[in-house]
Design a protein around this nucleic acid. Sequence first.
DNA 1: TACGTTGTTGAACGATCGTACAACAAGGAC
DNA 2: GTCCTTGTTGTACGATCGTTCAACAACGTA
Lengths: 219, 219
Amino acid sequence: MALSDARATAKPRYERQLPEQRRQELIDATIECLKRDGHEGLSMRAIATQAGVSLGLINHHFPNKDDLVAAAYRHFNSQLVDGLKAAVHKAPSFPRARMRAFLKASFSRPNLDPETLAVWVVFWGMYRHSPMIQGVHRESYQGYVQLLRDMLTELVAGADAGAPPVDLRLAAIGLTALLDGLWLEWCLQPGTFRPAEAIALCEAWVDNLVRRADVAALE
Amino acid sequence: MALSDARATAKPRYERQLPEQRRQELIDATIECLKRDGHEGLSMRAIATQAGVSLGLINHHFPNKDDLVAAAYRHFNSQLVDGLKAAVHKAPSFPRARMRAFLKASFSRPNLDPETLAVWVVFWGMYRHSPMIQGVHRESYQGYVQLLRDMLTELVAGADAGAPPVDLRLAAIGLTALLDGLWLEWCLQPGTFRPAEAIALCEAWVDNLVRRADVAALE
DNA sequence: TACGTTGTTGAACGATCGTACAACAAGGAC
DNA sequence: GTCCTTGTTGTACGATCGTTCAACAACGTA
């Protein structure tokens, strides 16, 4: 009859999701809000709206706001590091090609994007006062540093014999700084230089390191 | 009599200040709050408490919060740039000494300080959505870039004749990136390397630029 | 078809935010 | 000593924040 027909054809008011999937949707919504509005976008109501769910649902899947933010930070970090690792893995397996792939991935989307910087800045701002953010940072930054350190080790191992030994620690610090600095500069003012120029600057640093091992002579 | 004595010896409940001085006190209090609590410290009540005045007074000297923050950003910026310029000015007037003084000032307090980074991060976070912050940034960053560009020009002018011409634009971009990256890295994790090592890395970059002009061969 | 689990909603709470404004008082002018 | 200017206070308002919770409903199960 009419009633049961109406019931049968009526759309459900909402769809239930498995907790794992709903959690991921909320994490994605959080990052989306951060990209769009920065720190101002980090409100439970904005995130719920972005995810298309009600306000109360968030606290059903996350005990509080800090836990949601930490989960979003963890996801954001691992997505970045995994992307870089994948790019390196797909490259031809000699040191220079791997480093080139790493640099190219670093200076391409989605890394090289003012919106990505906007997300980073918010997380950086929480770093000092949130032990939870500090913990996530420690656990994920490690993978990044190790990846870069390994590539430098490969490169130096293939350098001219007889060259003075390279201080790998300082070399990694310097390359990381150059990389991060160029990335930051481009995101703040995309018109100043082209991504290819940033890659060239980084490769010049690496060249200089491998050919002349200047860094070893420091201090 | 007793009453007039009490009146005569009673301390005034507050001291009136000239608008200019009170404005500066409020600006200082704002930066102090940012150093201590980051983005969370940026509330009118926290700033008023820090400055030792009542909440309502802020709106007597600044039309709204954005104007106060912009004024604080302008002060913070010019203090930094002026400090660097002063350090360069006091150095012996040959190019290498000026560059060395610049680097030493960059990697010393008050620039090299996690609290300083905390303040920067908050301002960076506002950059995209606040035209006021963008305007202040443009007007003050110009001085910084010009200072660095001038020093590089001096240095390259004294380089070996016959060397290929240096792309000053790219050189400035690279040195700025290396400098900012090292500064950022140290502030985030002060134990990783010593300020002297950062200076050495930057000077190695400059040496390489002047002696071999590699950057000119890029691209 | 009826039931039970639980993902989901929506309203409500107290706290804190930026701002507005009337009343007060410090300190110079006369 | 009195007045006037204006720097300063304290309160109040509306908006928004994170969190809580009782009620609802989607959907697998029997």
